[in-house]
Each structure stands twice: as structure tokens, then as C-alpha cells.
């Protein structure tokens, strides 16, 4: 009697604490599992102990015959309770698998978020540097015009032969020339700054970009084939922006292709430099669209995209002194060829 009562009390205690855990860890699969497990324990304890207690009471009341009637029912319930608790116990493996999957997804999301954050920062920097450079060049241009005017006027005054002020005019002309040279040097050196440029390897970047879009391809049951060049395809550039550009092109291919399509990606070293070819067997691009594909704000999906994607991709590739070409033979999918100038580090 004591053992049976203790079983019920302790299992009820387990359930109370498991519910407390669930309150502090709402929606946590493990907390929920503990509640199920303790419910199963309670069912097991009640089914086991209830029979024992009832048996003792009926024997005490001299109603042995009634126990003989109830006993098979109590035993059957007891057996069922074992099946219930065993089934719940087996479910732990599934809970653990769910947790492992959640961890993987979480890590992937964290990684993607980090990449996006870094990419955003890099883009902001590039845009800011580009704006500064463009403003500086504009300013230089604005300075040069009046300097040229001053120089021209002083030169014509000198030609008129006003000897008394000739040394002063000559000094003004010299200074104007110096200012002009300064502006010319400034413009010459003011090529668009290559910030955050490091030595990159095209195969690695392509693989990273593929990993970023793989979930999208998996959703559409598409296959991404990578024909990786055995050579190291080094070039000089900004890692994040190049990954973004490659990812954008592959993402477009995934979006354009139907389910179960194959997207073939090839990296190679050709006479044009480090080459990346992205081929798909999708519906292709109409020739009238192909003409405008790199134009800013040109989009085939009105309202869904800004139409800046490919314009940015082209800008990024050209910033790396590379080039991008898209061809789409009718009904034969689309082929995107990207070239980056090969760079070989001096050891």
C-alpha cells in the first residue's frame, strides 16, 4: 500500500516539476518531452498502484470475488500503461534529432546573417568611397576650369608686352601651371579606390556562393553541378561583393529553372583569365530582354524586384576589372560567363 501510494505521489511530483520546466522553456522540445514523459510515468504509476490498492481494500472488505472480476481489467490497463510509457520513452531519439536539426539550421542562419552583415558593411563602404571619389574628381574638374581660364588670360597679358608687371604675371602663370599639374596628378591618381581588396580564389568563392543558395535549389529539387578547375584561380578583389555577385547569378538561374532542373557551374583558366560559367537548362531569356538585362531598374518581374540586381553584379565585376556576358540561345537555357583577370602572387 505504502509503495503504491508513494509511486503515485512521486510521479505526480515529477509532472508538477516538468510543467514548471515547460513554463520557463516554452516551446523547447526537450521541456515538452519531459512533460510527456512524466505524464506517462503518472499513468504507469496510477495503473500499477491503483490495482494494488484496490486489491487490498477489496480483500479487507472480504470482497475477493469482486477483485477476481476486476483483476484482468486492471492487469490489461497495466500492460497498456507499459506500452504508453515505452512509446514515449522511445520518442526521445526523435526529440534529439529535432534538436540537432534545429542547431544546424540555427548555425546556418547565424552564418548567413554574418555574411549579410559583412556584405552590407562592405557595400556601404564601397558606395561611400565611390561617392567620395566621384565628388573629388568633380571638384578637381571644377578647379581645373578656372585655373585654365586664369592661365590663358595671364598668357595673353604677357603677350601684350606689359614689361613692368611681367614678373608678377609670370609668377601667376607658374602658380596656375603648378595648380593645373596638381589637379592632373590628383585625377591621375584618383582611380576608384580598391578598398578591402585581397587575394581571392575563384573556386573557393564559387563553392561558398553555392552553399548560400543550396537551400533554395533543394526546395526546388534542383541539382547544382560544379566542374571545379584543378588550378587555383587567384585574383584580386573584395570577397563579400564577389560572393554576392556569383550568388545572385546562381540564384537567378535557380529561380528561372523549373523543378528538378540542373544548373552546371564551371570554373577554369582561359585566355580571358579566370573564368566562371553558369549554365542552366531553363526557359532562357528573350532576345529583346537580353539587350537591356544589365540596365538599372530593368526587370522582368515587375513589383517583385527592383531590377538593380544584375546592374550591381555588372558593376561589381567591372570594379574588379572583369567582365560578364550573358547568352541565351532560344529554348536552350542561359549561359552566363564571368571573367576576372588572373593574379598570381609572387612568392
Amino acid at each position: 500500500m505504502l509503495g503504491s501510494s508513494l509511486m503515485i505521489l512521486i510521479s505526480a511530483g515529477c509532472l508538477v516539476h516538468a510543467r514548471r520546466i515547460l513554463l520557463t522553456h516554452v516551446q523547447h522540445p526537450l521541456a515538452r518531452y519531459l512533460v510527456w514523459f512524466t505524464y506517462a510515468l503518472l499513468i504507469f504509476a496510477v495503473s500499477r498502484s491503483f490495482g494494488h490498492i484496490l486489491k487490498h481494500i477489496l480483500y479487507f472488505l472480504d470482497m475477493n470475488w469482486l477483485w477476481r472480476e476486476i483483476s484482468p481489467v486492471s492487469g490489461a490497463i497495466n500492460s497498456i500503461s507499459f506500452i504508453i510509457i515505452a512509446s514515449v520513452t522511445l520518442f526521445f531519439g526523435n526529440i534529439y534529432d529535432i534538436m540537432v536539426q534545429m542547431l544546424k539550421d540555427r548555425k546556418r542562419i547565424e552564418q548567413t546573417s554574418k555574411e549579410i552583415l559583412k556584405l552590407t558593411n562592405d557595400l556601404e563602404n564601397i558606395i561611400s568611397e565611390r561617392s567620395k571619389a566621384e565628388m573629388s574628381l568633380k571638384l578637381a574638374h571644377e578647379i581645373r576650369n578656372p585655373v585654365m581660364v586664369i592661365g590663358g588670360m595671364v598668357r595673353s597679358l604677357l603677350k601684350k608686352g606689359d614689361d613692368t608687371r611681367a614678373p608678377q604675371f609670370q609668377a601667376i602663370l607658374d602658380e596656375a601651371q603648378r595648380l593645373n599639374e596638381l589637379v592632373a596628378n590628383f585625377e591621375k591618381n584618383m582611380i576608384l579606390p580598391q578598398i578591402h581588396y585581397t587575394q581571392l580564389e575563384l573556386n573557393t568563392l564559387t563553392e561558398e556562393a553555392i552553399e548560400l543558395v543550396r537551400p533554395l535549389a533543394e526546395q526546388k529539387k534542383q541539382v547544382i553541378l560544379l566542374n571545379r578547375s584543378p588550378l587555383n584561380l587567384f585574383f584580386y578583389g573584395n570577397r563579400q561583393t564577389v560572393i554576392m555577385a556569383i550568388k545572385h547569378i546562381i540564384g537567378n538561374a535557380i529561380e528561372a529553372c523549373p523543378e528538378a532542373a540542373t544548373i552546371e557551374i564551371t570554373t577554369d583558366l582561359t585566355e580571358k583569365g579566370n573564368t566562371l560559367i553558369i549554365e542552366d537548362n531553363g526557359p532562357g531569356i528573350a532576345p529583346e530582354m537580353l539587350e537591356h538585362i544589365f540596365e538599372p531598374f530593368y526587370t522582368t518581374q515587375k513589383g517583385k524586384t527592383t531590377g538593380l540586381g544584375l546592374a550591381y553584379v555588372k558593376q561589381i565585376i567591372e570594379d574588379h576589372r572583369g567582365s560578364i556576358h550573358i547568352s541565351s540561345p532560344e529554348g536552350k537555357g542561359t549561359v552566363v560567363r564571368i571573367y576576372f583577370p588572373a593574379y598570381y602572387p609572387i612568392k
Binding site: H17, A18, I21, L34, T38
Partner: peptide, 17 residues
């Protein structure tokens, strides 16, 4: 056997809570 077993589970769940 089953009462100590159940008590140990109770102790564990209580600690986790």
C-alpha cells in the same frame, strides 16, 4: 526497485526545474 527509480527521476526533474 520501482519506488527508488521513480524517486531518482523526481529528484532529477526537480533539479532541472
Amino acid at each position: 526497485l520501482c519506488v527508488p527509480g521513480m524517486y531518482l527521476i523526481y529528484k532529477g526533474v526537480k533539479k532541472i526545474a
